[in-house]
Amino acid sequence: MEIELRINGSARRLDVSPQVSLLDALREYLGLTGTKKGCDQGACGACTVLADGRRINACLALAVQYQGREITTIEGVDHPLQEAFVRTDGFQCGYCTPGQICSAIGMLAEHKDGAPSAATEHLAATGGELDDEEIRERMSGNLCRCGAYNGIVSAIKEVAK
């Protein structure tokens, strides 16, 4: 079926069957390969993109359901986190990196909005400090098999300041 997606600020038309995931639509139909496939079942976070500013796993989203939403992929990201990742060596192979960056952008917004995490001591104390433990808890949906977790946390902390 013919659908229209808004991606990184522009409208893209494509012909997909209803079972095509947003992830496959991006990678296979639109050539936006910055968003990665690591498991195709919501377990690794490599496919994280922003839908209206909120982080989602594109592999668990059907493309047809995201018509009318503003999708941001790594190709549309221009954020201080990107340079911070390079400075703190928050990656090695780079495969999980687009997902980590998109996830971190979404996570920073969630924290700003006062959303608690499992690491939050008092649910009422919204907007508390984003310390290492909070960042690690909130980023745990994004796997990095190279083990660059220390650098990623440093990059996020640097930018969150």
């Binding site: 390969t33 910055g34 790594i74 190709e75 990656f91 780079g94 990196t97």
Partner: peptide, 12 residues
């Protein structure tokens, strides 16, 4: 290239 999605892997 790794922080902007420009690095092309084997399936890309």
């Amino acid at each position: 290239v790794k922080t902007t999605g420009a690095a092309k892997f084997a399936a890309e």
